[in-house]
């Protein structure tokens, strides 16, 4: 099996300050990797570098494309990278309003990626939208409502539907459950877990919430001050942390 994504020595500087550095890993098809660390640890910087939202100061992000095989997405032409962003890649933002068009109906939000890749049959697009609303547990009769009329949890589920409708192979998620109530988080996590398995998605999830990665991630990368300090199987890293920082992180979580 070939890795879906090969990340080699990614480095991002903010002037003299390190955003992230020396980050390398392989992600295989169907694998979910969590990146944890406190605010300022460089985890979001890394995610945005990987997704092409930030320019890097070095390194490679090699993605196994459908038509050309492994290609470094950092040196890809912009049209090609943006096409990837609408087809095989998806990005779920922490704040749904960053990932949704708030003035467009739920159906239009879901249909946008289909239309962006050439969908020109209204009936088919709408049927897909309704199907996806159902998969993310939103009532079909909300298809023509704007996201501004939705609760925070629904907005986040709509954002997920909008991203997954084109059947991407790699999903980047930035604190997907941040800012949601605990009960709403549980529902979202359960949903994401089911979709990841059904669709065989690979995902990279940035979060500071260790409960989230325990439920969703196969493996973990722990970051501190822009460096990766520990990697491994999720339950092993959480139950038998090796690095001082990971031990501190794990022991800081309140037990319920």
């Amino acid at each position: 099996m070939h890795p879906l994504l090969q990340v080699n020595n990614i480095r991002k500087m903010y002037g003299a300050r390190i955003g992230c550095t020396d980050v390398s890993f392989d992600l295989f098809p169907g694998e979910v990797m969590g990146i944890v660390g406190e605010s300022g640890s460089g985890k979001s910087t890394l995610l945005n570098c990987l997704a092409g939202h930030l320019d890097t100061d070095g390194g490679e992000v090699i993605f196994d494309t459908r038509d050309r095989g492994p290609v470094d997405t950092l040196t890809m032409s912009e049209p090609e990278r943006r096409m990837l962003g609408r087809t095989d890649w998806a990005f779920v933002h922490q704040h749904a309003r960053d990932g949704l068009r708030m003035s467009v109906s739920a159906g239009g939000n879901i249909g946008e990626r289909l239309m962006a890749v050439g969908g020109r049959h209204y009936g088919d697009i709408r049927a897909s939208a309704v199907d996806w609303l159902d998969r993310v547990e939103i009532e079909e009769n909300r298809v023509d409502d704007r996201p501004s009329a939705f609760s925070g949890g629904m907005q986040q589920r709509l954002q997920i539907a909008r991203n997954l409708v084109t059947g991407p192979r790699l999903v980047f998620m930035d604190e997907p459950t941040g800012g949601l109530d605990v009960s709403v988080q549980a529902r979202l996590l359960d949903l994401l877990r089911g979709l990841v398995r059904e669709m065989g998605l690979s995902a990279i999830i940035v979060t500071h919430d260790l409960a989230v990665v325990r439920l969703l991630a196969d493996r973990l990368m722990v970051m501190k001050s822009g460096h990766v300090v520990e990697t491994g199987l999720t339950d092993q890293v959480l139950d038998d942390p090796q690095h001082a920082y990971t031990q501190l992180l794990v022991s800081s979580v309140l037990q319920v």
């Binding site: 609408r86 068009r101 467009v104 159906g107 239009g108 249909g111 946008e112 990626r113 239309m115 962006a116 890749v117 969908g119 020109r120 209204y122 697009i125 709408r126």
Partner: peptide, 8 residues
């Protein structure tokens, strides 16, 4: 694609 979102 966005133009068709408007028509949608």
């Amino acid at each position: 694609g966005l133009m068709h979102v408007k028509l949608y």
